[in-house]
Design a protein around this nucleic acid. Structure first.
Lengths: 67, 67
DNA sequence: CTGTGACTTTTAGTCCGTC
DNA sequence: AGACGGACTAAAAGTCACA
């Protein structure tokens, strides 16, 4: 499966597990809410620094998000 | 340590372990020679699809490169 | 063989909305 | 609550000449 889709699925799963909306999570991660939506749908190709920003508020690792 | 520097160090280590020059590796990865140089020095912030291109010829994973 | 500055094209990433 | 579009700015992708 495409790495962007793997990231999207992992992100959505971990975010919803925490009961956060996309907007609430975006604020915690310091990125824009529409960008979170795009990433979860596998429609974007983020940089490694963005993936790190996603991992931090989730308390997970970059590797876990991309696996 | 910065994720870009971790990627750079891991990439350089794995590449040299295989006895490849930057140029030879770049050809295998389908990436430009100077771009590989930049990544190894932590001077770039690549996207996840680029990291995937790096991992493939090394026979390793994106996670390993970013860890 | 590798580093680096300069460069153009492409896309990452933001912000405004509407459905 | 989230999908999605348009327009925009910042930065990545990708290449080259030369040290």
């Amino acid at each position: 499966m495409d790495i962007r889709q793997r990231l999207g699925r992992n992100l959505r799963r971990l975010r919803t597990e925490r009961g956060w909306s996309q907007e609430e999570f975006a604020d915690r991660a310091g990125i824009h809410r529409t960008y979170v939506s795009d990433i979860e749908r596998g429609a974007r190709n983020p940089t490694i620094t963005v993936v790190e920003k996603l991992a931090t508020p989730l308390g997970t690792t970059v590797s876990a998000l991309l696996s």
